[in-house]
Nucleic acid binder design. Structure first.
Lengths: 240, 240
DNA sequence: CGTAAAATTGACTGACTTCAAATTCGGTGG
DNA sequence: CCACCGAATTTGAAGTCAGTCAATTTTACG
């Protein structure tokens, strides 16, 4: 292995959930993979695919999405570097949603068998992978709640809080200043709103003074108040 | 083992995801557990708990829920007999939502350690447990989509389709005739609507003629049309 | 500099909510 | 078997948050 192993971001993400022995870390880094670069808007996985690989996001942002009957899109999650964007495809035979590049991304496709084998040969690894899956589920449940029972303002504030903490924890960006390369239309698709209404709501948030959105960078002036406005408590992310 | 092992429903559910050797099945059935009966509306797990046990639902229905700042409730999932209602608590230290009994239920509390140990001693079991977790995640994503991007009528139709297939697959009820012990208020909390609007929407569905709801029993007269109206396709359940 | 995508704004609409009251249902005790 | 009571359902009227449509401005970028 050289100084900066390619799969390092993935290992770092997994180690958020618990410590790894040096041997386990080495085993993860030694997983076979195919590196690929995918342009903005390109597909990483397509709904209905029968993937032969799982996929780790090494650089850039991606999002999961589904399309409903009338053509509208729902964004299900936003993935940041280090995320295993579709660990589910290591076991589930058929992709139940698409994963698309939000920016230009670099991904490592890892064949299913070695990753599953490793999970069971080395329980420490297996537990972290499983844990990661469970946290994904927890975030999904929080999104259900966010979309189902909060108003537009609260929803967007909540989303911005989530990104702040996840990016901070991943060592990208700070809690109160980070880059979020999403258009207002994408924020709308993530929150179950329309782009027009997101625009108006963001304006109101600007005016309330505890947040600034300039181009793609978010600056949070008063974290506590934003968190309160967004009905945000970080437990569901299962940090610490 | 006697004729009808207590944990049988759980094993049966897991076997939906793949076959088990007789030895593996026996190992699952031999897991230690504490049986408990919980009255309607009683809590199985409380948001914020640090549970020491996972929990299998043996009889009756339950639902997962979160409460938002203004006191409103969002139902995140409905669990049917056989479901591992909080496998996540075998690894996650803190419950991120509550699980409550929809009817009177009988549950088996299984200590965390043996279930995790079994998962790694017997990869066949581990894979099924992990698979189960992944399907849970898939269902959560479909719920995000349902609530975020479908109108009231479609949302409710979709929910009814999901229950139909899950209950059929679990061997409880039929695809076009089953018992659903949810009040309209609970349906509202599951779909991000209000009880009043659910009432009106159900009326419209009745009038359209391909569905009847009498007390707690649902009779679907035209499955194909209901599925179409509900923008329902079963892939996300990962049956077959 | 030119072009397309993204953001912004205004006027209008509507799906769903809110509030409140009436009716029906389901279970319990007499 | 009936009377009763709280919960659940149903209905009506009015309100609103967010959507729709369409035009304009700004931004990104080759």
């Amino acid at each position: 292995m050289n100084a900066a192993p390619i799969l390092e971001p993935m290992v770092r993400k997994l180690e958020l959930w618990g410590p790894l022995e040096e041997e386990d870390r080495a085993a993860l880094l030694a997983l076979p993979y195919t590196l690929r670069e995918i342009p903005q808007q390109g597909y990483i996985v397509r709904d209905g695919d029968r993937p032969t690989h799982s996929c780790a996001l090494l650089r850039g942002y991606a999002f999961r999405q589904k399309i409903v009957a009338d053509g509208e899109r729902q964004i299900l999650a936003v993935q940041i570097p280090g995320d295993l964007v579709d660990l589910q495809n290591s076991l589930l035979p058929k992709a139940d949603h698409s994963v698309q590049a939000l920016t230009r991304v670099e991904v490592a496709y890892i064949p299913r068998e070695p990753i599953v084998a490793l999970a069971f040969e080395r329980p420490a690894i297996g537990k972290l992978l499983w844990f990661d899956t469970l946290v994904d589920g927890s975030i999904a449940r929080e999104w259900i709640t966010n979309i189902g029972r909060r108003d537009a303002y609260t929803r967007i504030a909540h989303l911005l809080c989530e990104f702040a903490l996840r990016l901070e924890k991943a060592g990208i960006g700070e809690r109160d200043r980070y880059e979020l390369p999403m258009t207002q239309e994408q924020i709308a698709d993530a929150t179950g709103l329309t782009a027009v209404h997101v625009n108006r709501t963001l304006r109101t948030m600007d005016e309330s003074g505890f947040l600034t959105r300039d181009k793609r960078s978010v600056v949070i002036h008063d974290w506590a108040r934003l968190a309160q406005a967004g009905d945000f408590s970080s437990g569901y992310l299962h940090f610490d």
